[in-house]
């Protein structure tokens, strides 16, 4: 064991010096997004259906004015996700006008009511990113992968712990989105955000208390809106999360049994060698 001591000391010294640098680097006025409690966190986490439905409502009434969300309507019927009924999704899809992929018999590209198989169309006002950028200054990103495409640096040594069973923290993107929505803390400057790196954000404050009317009794507060839309966007980016964790649990149990059996088999084989 002695031989590890020198190595341990050396690595500890190095770690400390790096940690010091990291802390010094961190600007005091750029706080990290606070960590939230999410139903989809942890080994057994799944999505909260009511929350996703509220989140979709927020998307539809607020975000969708500027942001595309390129997922098919049929995904909204996902029982692990928002879980809308087939008929609800069909009606919803039909309420959108979708450009048909192929021209009609006369060779014209035409619009038709959407079907569940179609992608949710882009905001009507901005048919492409250039059009959006021309009006808004910067094209709002497609939200279909937003929760996976955003993060904040956890720094050493926390990023190591974030990977470990029991301590795992994989919701950095969700916490970032939630923090951004709650980060408009200067009423006189709608494009100043506490959590956005550098604070100058292209998106002016999108939503405030009371902007969306919930029908299930949830309080219409910014805090609830941001949690709900974040959960919805996390589902949109990672719809297979519940299935993944369910299969994962079985795989882990199986592998522990297999490893145990193999361990004893190996021991038996080893005994025979002497």
């Amino acid at each position: 064991m002695i031989r590890f001591k020198s190595a341990a000391l050396a690595s500890a010294a190095l770690a400390l010096s790096f940690g010091g640098f990291a802390l010094a680097q961190e600007e005091a006025d750029q706080p990290k997004p606070p960590r939230q409690e999410w139903s989809f966190a942890g080994m057994f986490g799944t999505y909260d259906q009511a929350q996703l439905q509220r989140g979709f409502q927020v998307y539809r009434e607020v975000c969708s004015n500027c942001h595309a969300l390129s997922i098919p309507f049929r995904a909204l019927a996902d029982p692990d996700g928002p879980g809308y009924g087939e008929d609800q999704v069909k009606t919803l899809a039909a309420s959108y006008q979708v450009t048909n992929a192929e021209p009609n018999d006369k060779g014209e590209i035409f619009k038709r009511p959407g079907t569940p198989a179609d992608l949710i169309p882009r905001p009507e006002a901005y048919p492409n990113d250039q059009a959006a950028a021309a009006v808004l200054g910067k094209a709002p990103p497609d939200m279909n992968l937003l929760a996976k495409a955003r993060k904040y640096e956890r720094g050493f040594p926390w990023f190591v712990f974030d990977a470990l069973p029991g301590l795992e923290y994989q919701e950095v993107g969700s916490d970032y989105i939630d923090a951004i929505l709650n980060g408009y803390t200067k009423p006189d400057d709608p494009q100043w955000n506490l959590y956005y790196p550098g604070h100058k954000i292209a998106m002016p404050q999108p939503i405030t208390d009371g902007a969306v009317k919930y029908t299930d009794g949830t309080a219409p507060t910014l805090s609830n809106y941001s949690k709900d839309i974040t959960a919805f966007l996390t589902w949109a980016a990672e719809p297979n999360l519940p299935e993944r964790k369910k299969i994962g649990l079985r795989v882990m149990l199986f592998l522990f049994v297999l490893a145990g059996l193999l361990y004893f088999t190996k021991k038996r084989v080893g005994e025979a060698a002497h």
Partner: peptide, 19 residues
């Protein structure tokens, strides 16, 4: 292989095959 190992071998092999 001695007989006393057989059961363990078969179980481990079967579980591996399921995997």
């Amino acid at each position: 292989a001695p007989n006393r190992r057989d059961f363990l071998f078969l179980t481990a092999g079967a579980v591996g095959a399921v995997g």
